[in-house]
Design a protein around this nucleic acid. Sequence first.
DNA 1: TATGAATGAGTCTTCATTCAT
DNA 2: AATGAATGAAGACTCATTCAT
Lengths: 194, 194, 194, 194
Amino acid sequence: MPEERRGELLATAAEVFAAQGYNATTVRQIADAAGMLAGSLYYHFDSKESMVDEILTAFLDELWAGYDAVLEAGLGPRETIEALVTESFREIDRHRAAVAIYQKEARHLADRHPRFGYLADARLRFAGAWLGTLERGVADGTFRADLDIRLAYRFLRDTVWVAASWYRPGARHGPEEIARQYLSMVLDGIALRD
Amino acid sequence: MPEERRGELLATAAEVFAAQGYNATTVRQIADAAGMLAGSLYYHFDSKESMVDEILTAFLDELWAGYDAVLEAGLGPRETIEALVTESFREIDRHRAAVAIYQKEARHLADRHPRFGYLADARLRFAGAWLGTLERGVADGTFRADLDIRLAYRFLRDTVWVAASWYRPGARHGPEEIARQYLSMVLDGIALRD
Amino acid sequence: MPEERRGELLATAAEVFAAQGYNATTVRQIADAAGMLAGSLYYHFDSKESMVDEILTAFLDELWAGYDAVLEAGLGPRETIEALVTESFREIDRHRAAVAIYQKEARHLADRHPRFGYLADARLRFAGAWLGTLERGVADGTFRADLDIRLAYRFLRDTVWVAASWYRPGARHGPEEIARQYLSMVLDGIALRD
Amino acid sequence: MPEERRGELLATAAEVFAAQGYNATTVRQIADAAGMLAGSLYYHFDSKESMVDEILTAFLDELWAGYDAVLEAGLGPRETIEALVTESFREIDRHRAAVAIYQKEARHLADRHPRFGYLADARLRFAGAWLGTLERGVADGTFRADLDIRLAYRFLRDTVWVAASWYRPGARHGPEEIARQYLSMVLDGIALRD
DNA sequence: TATGAATGAGTCTTCATTCAT
DNA sequence: AATGAATGAAGACTCATTCAT
């Protein structure tokens, strides 16, 4: 199965990229981690760039599949937010490295090469999904009306994805449990209610 | 005043580092932005590394001054959190570039050179300050007891600092206003209370 | 004079390119010949490609200056051919390396990068100049009408430029003398007239 | 017939070498053109070098067979020149790619590896054949005595072989017709006789 | 016979850094 | 204080070649 080998190599590469940053990672480091010589990677991939590219598109494709399912389910605003957050943590659980790379490098990559234009697109689609849901929720009284909605969006977005920088799969809490706690804080606050 | 020139150059360097990432920034880009040739920077600084070093220590020194003032003021847990968050946003307002660099590069730099050991120390001191306050707050009933306190800590920490990645000084809301809104979300949640 | 240094380096590069072929020449060989390290060349030039580019454009610019002067002088066909051939040999004398490079690499370079499109243009302009003169000459009875004119054009063109592959400046015969002999063969043939 | 396959592969390789130059041609390009993978070529040939080697020796062997027949036929100088030129164009017709490779790469290859010493030898044998005939012709009054004989030799040699760079087999004029026109120009000139 | 995967040497290029002026 | 020119180490990538299957 030639696809398997590619997949393994990409997983290895993603791990190294996530740990050291895309720029700071040398092709040789990836090759070392994969147990081959640097040049040999070019039998499988066109370039270092193609590697991140594949890693990121694979992740985003899966992510959008999950998000779209949620968005098309016809849930109320609160349930939609809950489902999106949970889905996000599941994605972090499965693609931790890819998420970390996305967080650290997306802007940089999108700025540099038109090839990564889809990263800018993804950003917009994100904004649409979250902002839309927040607006719906404010309109129907689910969410507080006194908050700057764009601020709340950034708050939610960052809050979720930054978790990729410290999350380790297989830890005590699974993604669903972490999602539950995050949601509890985000929705109801950390202060004790009177 | 030779110190002024240094300061200007560091500010320029910080801006470029923040925009492109430390590794991706070339000494030549900094020199260009400063209107001189790459080699000329070495009259002022030992190395590219010294530049980030100075940028980060200057920022952290100021930050700790602010934090220490808050922590020694003898405030209650909720007021302490509020003051720390507000102080943080003020720091982001004044040192946006340095904060962004800290966010993106701290781990990487600390891993690579013992010279940057103070970054790891800072991380610990942060954790101490926030975690301690949270624990106090749980103990005295200010904060909810049903939350994972380490998760809450990360939540707060990330929530605040990630703002450096999108905050632009001089925008509509000043740092105090943004702090207020953040605190409102963090403390009371985004869901409407019944 | 910074321009002088560039010029020397280009002359060195041209010599190596001409001797070994563009592709077979390594940047290191050029640097060795110039008494510096490979990387140092990049202070002066963007790339190996820019080097050939500058070498070829400088040569073609000078060549066209000479050709244009001839073509605008209002000479008869035979005198025009004589002047063009003489001018060509003078150019070979002054830019032997550049001419050799042009001969060996022009097609290859023009095919590969749009940047070298001007090489294809030059080919067309050449054809125009020589073919036009030949046609005029056939029309007014200067040249034999029984020859395939495109064949005669290639014959003239190649005959002249290939000389760059063996010509050594400073040899017994100067360019004018060689031109005279070439013209004698081309115009009147090598067979003894009855 | 294993020999047939070899021959096909060599013809393919020759075509690619001629189009792109020996150095610029990758083994993979040859393999692509032959419908196989790069590694598979090594079942048939020792190395890329062996491929050019076989291509050039096959061509030179045939060429010398033709030349020797002419040179041993006891013809007069003019007839010998005519026969050599005609034979050369026939060779170009049959081995266009090989001739083009010989033209572009012979010097380079001969300089680099002793293995290609025969290319330098061929050069000398050529010179002997053509120069000898020219000298005989000058001596017996067939050719003009006022020409530099070495120049005339280069003129003839280049004139003929450069044709390989533009000749396309199967074009309007066959090799014999092109030879006739070339000879007409070379022997009698392009200027109209009074 | 041919494939797929890998090797290893070498190429162009980048870049932090140095230093005489 | 700053320039211009260079160094040297490292990095991404290419490619002829090998070899087990």
